Amino acid sequence: MTKVLVAGATGYLGRYIAHELQSRGYRVTVVVRNSAKLTAFEKAHFEVIEAEVTNPDSLAGCCDGVDVVISTVGITRQKDDLTYMDVDYQANLNLLQQAQQGGVKKFIYVSALNGEKLKHLKIFQAKEAFVDELKASGLGYCVIRPNGFFSDMAEIFHMAEKGRVYLFGDGTLKGNPIHGEDLAEYCVNAITASDQELNVGGPQTLTQNEIASIAFEALGTTPQITHIPDWCRVAICKILTTFTSSKFYGPFEFFLTVMGREMVAPQYGNRTLKEYYQGLNDKTPESAS
């Protein structure tokens, strides 16, 4: 039976991947920083390694007997005074070195769409530096570059909850975000695929205006969308990168950049943004009362 190690298994995507692997009959080992974040089911069905991926000593031997590593390790929000290079690059490199020592056959790394084209952004400098290490490692590998997650699109839903969505430009730029469960299926499929680099997005390509309208539709309210001149987006990004540290501006630099370009990848999955937003609405205090 194939043994798969999942790094980042308590994160949004990593948790979906671990469960997808278990449902398909793989032996699953998870590397987590804090095992208290695991559910009783996960503790019962996964082999658990508690380690700090930024500390190579804590990972010693983690890949012994492992056939495939899937890493979703990366900073989504700055914390603990760590940089993108500390986590997206070095922590993944620590895992890669353990994979080499342990005789792992394949290393699957989840990056982000257009990373190879956006290396001027701090987050992608780190991610793509690791991709270069992975390609040179001698291991079988697959780099998966997904579009934005549905969970990222929750920000638009929360703006709609407050009565108005603000978009840069005219709102006609397109994207096809993907649900974590669909992406998890795709990542697990990559274990037996021969592809070395894959781009993937969700099943629907939508304009930013359409995404905002779907949020209002899920709430049952009239769409109220304000378009902010795109030069404001560029100016904000310039001010942040000039006057703040990369630890502060990194997430904003990424968000503001991708909001100003089309983000479309090959379509996969069947979960829709409308269903996701309806689920968020069902969880609001108003709908629960």
Rank of each mutant, 00 (worst) to 15 (best):
V4F: 03
V6I: 10
A9H: 01
Y12G: 03
G14Q: 07
G25Q: 08
R27S: 13
R33C: 04
K37A: 09
A40R: 11
H45E: 15
A51R: 07
A51H: 08
E52D: 13
E52I: 05
E52N: 10
N55Q: 06
D57H: 13
D57L: 14
S58T: 11
L59H: 10
A60W: 08
C62L: 08
C63V: 06
C63L: 03
D67F: 11
D67R: 11
V68I: 13
G74C: 06
I75L: 15
L82M: 12
T83L: 13
Y84I: 03
Y84A: 12
L96G: 05
Q97N: 15
Q98M: 07
Q100W: 00
E116S: 15
E116G: 13
E116I: 12
K117M: 14
L121N: 06
L121E: 04
F124K: 13
F124Q: 14
K127Q: 02
K135L: 10
A136N: 09
L139A: 05
Y141L: 11
P146F: 08
D152F: 12
D152S: 15
M153T: 14
M153R: 14
I156N: 07
F157D: 12
H158K: 11
G169Q: 02
G169T: 02
G169C: 01
T172Y: 00
K174T: 13
N176E: 03
I178K: 03
L183P: 03
C187W: 09
N189C: 07
N189A: 14
A190K: 13
I191E: 05
T192R: 08
D195W: 04
G201P: 03
Q204T: 10
T205H: 04
T205A: 10
N209A: 01
E210Y: 07
E210V: 04
A212L: 10
I214Q: 15
A215W: 12
I225Q: 02
I225V: 06
T226P: 00
P229K: 06
A235R: 10
T241C: 08
G250L: 01
V258D: 00
M259S: 11
R261N: 03
Q267V: 00
N270E: 14
N270V: 12
R271L: 14
L280K: 09
A288K: 15
S289K: 05
